[in-house]
């Protein structure tokens, strides 16, 4: 049961400085995209809550669509980040 035998850390392979800079750049870009969407949601709920009652599609209000949208956006962006930051053999 070797994987469960938790001794001292064996030491993984750290990203190269180039990869670290690249990942930080991608992360910041995706962070800005998500933060903009989250901020729009929160400000709409706080200062234009009547808009949340409008039903853009399928007889379901904007509050439900935007809430689910934010949760799904987080999942999608995390997968995009993981894919863009994958190791590409440049060490």
């Amino acid at each position: 049961m070797a994987p469960l035998d938790h001794g001292p850390a064996a030491g993984g392979v750290d990203d190269t400085p180039h990869e670290q800079r690249r990942n930080a750049r991608i992360g910041m870009l995706l962070f800005i995209v998500y933060t903009a969407c989250y901020t729009a949601f929160v400000l709409t709920a706080a200062f234009a809550s009547e808009r949340m009652a409008t039903r853009p599609w399928a007889d379901i209000n904007l509050a439900i669509w935007s809430g689910f949208g934010l949760l799904l956006l987080a999942l999608v962006l995390s997968l995009v980040y993981s894919w863009l930051c994958r190791a590409r053999g440049v060490k």
Partner: peptide, 21 residues
């Protein structure tokens, strides 16, 4: 549900900004 949205949003900060450094 607002808590659900806020709690998950926090992970975006963790992944994109904090985790690797």
């Amino acid at each position: 549900f607002l808590y659900s949205i806020g709690y998950l949003a926090g992970w975006i900060v963790a992944l994109f900004v904090i985790a690797e450094p």
